Structure formats: structure tokens, C-alpha cells
Simulated scan of single mutants.
Amino acid sequence: MVQQVIDCLVNVHFGETEHQPQFMTKVRDDYFKGPPSMFDPIDLSELLDEMDAHGVAKAILMDNLTTPSVTARKFVEARPDRFMLAIGGVNLLKPVASLRELTSVVADLPIAYAVVGPSFWGDGMYPPSDAVYYPLYAKCAEIELPLCVNTGIPGPPIPGEVQNPIHLDRVCVRFPELRLCMIHGADPWWDIAIRMLIKYQNLRLMTSAWSPRRLPDELLHYMRTRGREKIIFASDWPVLRQSRVVPEAKALDLPAEALDNYLYNNADDFFFRRSEEH
């Protein structure tokens, strides 16, 4: 019986802006078929109630260097026992000031990981193997901050080839100290992602924005066998609600140990133990 869950990607910032970018509304309407309420302001008690109902002990809330989420930081301040932050918004083209700010934020706030989305950066011109990312890789390795990189074809109508996991191959070779996690799955390149996970010790994959019952057979086989410590659960709440994805995850045909690892242990080891040690 799985006792606890860590949800490693939760969005509470959507309601902070009156109008979402067009690509986000298209993702909601065309890709996820979500309700208009998906982008409503979030109440702390509402989120905690859903977490408690489904055994979610901790959640990582998305934040941004350039446009900090008032809601996410307020939630973390109110319940540091339940929440940490994930930080995006590093300026890859003018990295020095941006990375100084990242270092300062990591020192002041409970940051679980940094995040970057190649398809969303520079009009999808820069794959993760491009040197434009190297200052970010070096800084995250230096301060021992895990870095999450979007992989797989994205939902919005923007270029997706830069998110092929093969672009991380050279990164893992050149930055072996960097703890790196592929997020939002790896569709349609699951086989490449799995091969990369086998090859590199410090690489993980997060299934955020994926319904567990839609995960491919090859990934589930990997989770049952040599990948028990490699795959991390996340919802991408409220895009996918915990009320949907946690029961789906618990219903997967996985050995108890593999399921515990997927829902809690792998995230605890990769993201949270670092914060407790520093």
C-alpha cells in the first residue's frame, strides 16, 4: 500500500494574470480539453484538500525569476512543510546577471530544481546541446541544484524537435556532475529517453502532464525492471488534477516497491534530500 505521494510539478500561478497567452489557451482547449476554470486563481485550502484526499505529502510549485509567482511564494511561506519551488526564467542569452539572481534565490528560498523548456526558448532554435545552455548547466552543477528540461513534442503549436531527448546525450557527457531530469515525458521518443536513462546515472524522467494510464508499455516495463529508481511522478496540476492522476498511478501494474519509488522515493531522493542536506 502506497502511503505517500510527492507531486513534483504543480502550477498555482495561472490565476495571477487576467489573460493567458494564446498558446496556453490552445493547449487547454485543443490538447487537454480542459475547463475554463483551469486558469482560475487558486485557493491554498483547495489545493491542500485535494492533496490530503490523495495522500500527496509534498508538492513542488512552479515559479519564475523574471515574473515571480506571488501565489507560489505565499503558499511556500504558509506551509513550508508541504511545498517547495521550481524556478524557471533564466535568460540564456544574457546569463551572468540571471545566474547571479538564480544563486541568490536558491540561497533565500526552498528551491527543489531549476527548469528550462527548449521549445519555449528562442523560438525553438536552441536544442539543449547548444552552448547557450552551458552557463546554466555549470551553475546548477556548482550549486548542486537539479535541472529539469522539457522533453517530448510540446502541446502548444511551437517547434518540438529541440526537445528530442537525444540532445541531452552530449550534455550528460560534458556535465556528469549535473543532476538532470527530463520532464513532461518524452513522446514520441520514449525509447531514446529510456536508453539515455540506462546510460547516464544522474539522469531521470518525470511524467508530468501525462495521464499514468496513457504511459507507454516500454516505459512501464522499464519501471518494473532496471528503471525502478529513475522515473518520477508529477501531475502538472491543474492541467491534470491529482484526483485523476494519483488513482491512475496507483492502479498501474507495478510491483509495490516500483510504485512506491515512482510516487515518492525517487522524487524524495532526487529533489528533497538535497534541500535537507544543505
Rank of each mutant, 00 (worst) to 15 (best):
250 K>R: 15
148 C>P: 00
153 I>L: 13
23 F>A: 02
192 I>T: 15
4 Q>M: 07
2 V>T: 15
148 C>R: 04
203 L>E: 09
18 E>C: 00
210 W>E: 01
228 R>L: 06
36 P>T: 00
160 G>T: 00
223 M>I: 06
31 Y>H: 11
213 R>N: 13
34 G>P: 05
128 P>I: 07
131 A>M: 08
81 D>A: 08
207 T>I: 15
85 L>M: 09
126 Y>E: 09
262 Y>K: 06
192 I>V: 14
149 V>F: 01
145 L>F: 12
160 G>N: 09
126 Y>I: 01
244 R>D: 11
83 F>G: 01
225 T>L: 01
124 G>N: 07
24 M>A: 09
78 A>F: 12
9 L>A: 13
114 A>L: 05
225 T>G: 02
28 R>S: 11
94 K>E: 15
222 Y>N: 13
134 Y>L: 06
200 Y>C: 09
67 T>D: 12
161 E>R: 12
225 T>R: 02
70 V>R: 13
106 V>Y: 01
60 I>C: 06
73 R>Q: 13
34 G>D: 02
274 R>E: 13
47 L>Q: 10
161 E>W: 15
273 R>V: 03
203 L>H: 13
270 F>A: 10
174 R>E: 15
278 H>G: 09
275 S>Q: 15
154 P>M: 00
34 G>C: 02
156 P>I: 02
3 Q>E: 14
20 Q>S: 07
173 V>H: 02
28 R>W: 10
276 E>P: 00
213 R>T: 14
28 R>K: 10
5 V>A: 05
23 F>V: 07
112 A>R: 02
234 A>Q: 03
208 S>C: 14
231 I>E: 02
131 A>G: 12
43 D>I: 08
217 D>T: 15
166 I>N: 05
274 R>P: 00
68 P>M: 01
80 P>W: 03
160 G>S: 05
71 T>D: 06
82 R>I: 07
4 Q>D: 11
161 E>G: 04
173 V>R: 06
192 I>K: 09
54 H>W: 12
228 R>N: 06
178 L>A: 07
44 L>W: 12
50 E>L: 01
277 E>F: 07
121 W>I: 13
34 G>F: 00
254 L>V: 13
